[in-house]
Design a protein around this nucleic acid. Structure first.
Lengths: 233, 233
DNA sequence: CGCCACTTTATTGTCAACAATTAAGCTAAA
DNA sequence: TTTAGCTTAATTGTTGACAATAAAGTGGCG
C-alpha cells in the first residue's frame, strides 16, 4: 500500500489526526474562535453531532479537548458551553502570556540559531513594509502571531511550547477575533519587535524577557482601556 | 429532597464530579503519580476498564483528561502511555513553574488580604518547628505544596490558578514522587519562604516575584545536579 | 395570585457491539 | 539465514441504544 507515486512521504506524517474526533475538534475549535458559535452559547451534543455528521462519542471527545484549551467550560450533568467574553478573563490571559512568553523570549535569546534569527528578521521586514504602505494601521492578524510563534518554538522548551502554541494559542485567537474591531496601531509593535530581535541577537536573555513582557503588558493595557470605556457586557 | 439534616450544604458542592469518568480520572491519576503505573508504560484500554470496573467510554475520557494534564501521551491509532521520566522534561517543567509561580507571587503581593497572610505565616511556623525537630531533614512533601498553593490562589487570577493547580500540579507531584529518594534540606527552603512572606507583607510585587523565581530555580538546579550524576535512564 | 410538589421532557452519562487500523506472527522465496 | 509479503490477532475508533440526572412544564393547594 501507499506506493502510489508518493516518493517524499509527504503528508504521511505520523501524529496527524485522521480520526473523526480530531477533525471534529478542529472544526468546532474554528467555529468557536471565529464566533460562529458565540461566547456563552450552550453546546448541545445531539444537535452538534447531527450538524457535524458524527456520533456523540467523537463529539464528546472533541468537546473535552476544547475544555482543556480553555475555550469551553463543562459542568457535570449540565453540559458544556463556550466561555463568556469578559474583560477580566482577557486580562488574566495576558498576564499568563506575559509570564510564559517572557520566559520563552529569554530562553530564545540563549538557544536561537542564526537561521532562526534570519527568519525572524525576514518577518520584521514584511511587517515594516506593511507599516509604511498602510500608514501603520492594522496588521497584527497573522503576522504578529508568526513572530511570537517563532520565538516560542526557539525556546527549545517543549512543555512551554505546547502550553502556548497548542493550549492557550486558540484562546488568544478567539479573544483577538472578538475584539478585532479595535484597530491597533502597529508602529509601536514594530519598534518593540525590533528591540526584541536586537536583544536576542546580542544573546541578552534578561533584556529579551523584559522587552517581551513589556510588549505584552502594553497590549493588555491597550485592550483594557478600549474595553473598560465600553459597557462591556 | 436533600433536607436530611444537612444544614450547611456541606459536600453538596456543585462542580463535584460524581461521574464514573471523573472518578476514574482521579483513580488513574493517583496510580500514575504514585508510580503504580510506571513512566513509559502503555495504557491498555480493555485491561484498565476491567481493572477499574468501568466500560471503555469513561475510561477513554479519563485518559484524555490525563493527556491534557501532561501526565500521558497519546498517538492516534496506537494508544496512550505514561510520559517517560526524563531529566530535560523535569527541567522544562521547572522553567514553566518559575514563570507562572513568579507571576503568581507578584500578583499575590498585590492582592493578598490579612487573613491569607496570617494563614501563610501559620504554615511557616509549622515548617520551622519541623526543621528544628528533625534537624532540617526532609519536609517538603505536602507542607511545601500548601505554601505554594496558597500563594497561587491569592493571585486572584483564575486562569493562572487553573493552569498551576489543576493542570501542572499533578505533573509536579509525579516528578516529586519519583525523585523523592533525594532528601532536600529544607532549611534553605524555609529561609526562602520567610523572605517571600516578608516581600508579600510589604506589598512588594517585584521582590516577591524575584524571590519566588529564585526559589524555584534553586530547586531546579538541585534536582539537576542530583540526576545528572546518576545514569538517568 | 403565588408557591410548592409532581410529572414530563430533554440532555447528559454509560454501555456493549461493530468497524478500522496497527502490530505481531508466519510462511515462502532469495 | 534473512527478508519480503501475507495472514492473523490485538487494540483503538466509532456507533446506536439504554440509564441516570437535571431542567421545564403542569396542576393543585394555600
Amino acid at each position: 500500500m501507499n506506493n502510489e507515486s508518493n516518493p517524499s512521504n509527504f503528508k504521511v506524517d505520523k501524529n496527524q489526526d485522521n480520526t473523526l474526533s480530531g477533525q471534529t475538534t478542529i472544526a468546532l475549535r474554528e467555529a468557536i474562535v471565529t464566533g460562529k458559535i458565540k461566547p456563552g452559547e450552550k453546546l448541545n451534543e445531539p444537535k452538534l453531532a447531527e450538524q457535524y455528521q458524527v456520533s456523540r462519542g467523537p463529539l464528546r471527545e472533541a468537546i473535552r479537548r476544547l475544555v482543556s484549551m480553555g475555550l469551553v467550560e463543562h459542568i457535570p450533568h449540565v453540559g458544556a458551553s463556550v466561555i463568556p467574553l469578559e474583560l477580566n478573563r482577557i486580562i488574566e490571559l495576558y498576564e499568563v502570556r506575559e509570564a510564559l512568553e517572557g520566559m520563552a523570549a529569554g530562553l530564545a535569546a540563549t538557544h536561537m540559531n542564526e537561521q532562526e534569527i534570519a527568519d525572524l528578521k525576514k518577518l520584521l521586514v514584511i511587517h515594516r513594509q506593511h507599516c509604511e504602505n498602510n500608514a501603520g494601521e492594522y496588521m497584527q492578524t497573522e503576522g504578529d502571531f508568526d513572530f511570537h510563534y517563532l520565538i516560542i518554538k526557539s525556546s527549545r522548551n517543549a512543555l512551554l511550547t505546547q502550553q502556548l502554541c497548542n493550549e492557550l494559542y486558540h484562546l488568544i485567537r478567539m479573544y483577538r477575533f472578538q475584539t478585532s474591531r479595535f484597530k491597533t496601531r502597529s508602529n509601536r509593535a514594530l519598534i518593540e519587535h525590533e528591540q526584541l530581535i536586537y536583544a536576542i541577537e546580542n544573546r541578552d536573555p534578561a533584556l529579551a524577557e523584559l522587552l517581551m513582557r513589556r510588549h505584552i503588558s502594553r497590549a493588555k493595557e491597550s485592550i483594557k482601556s478600549y474595553l473598560s470605556t465600553e459597557d462591556s457586557n
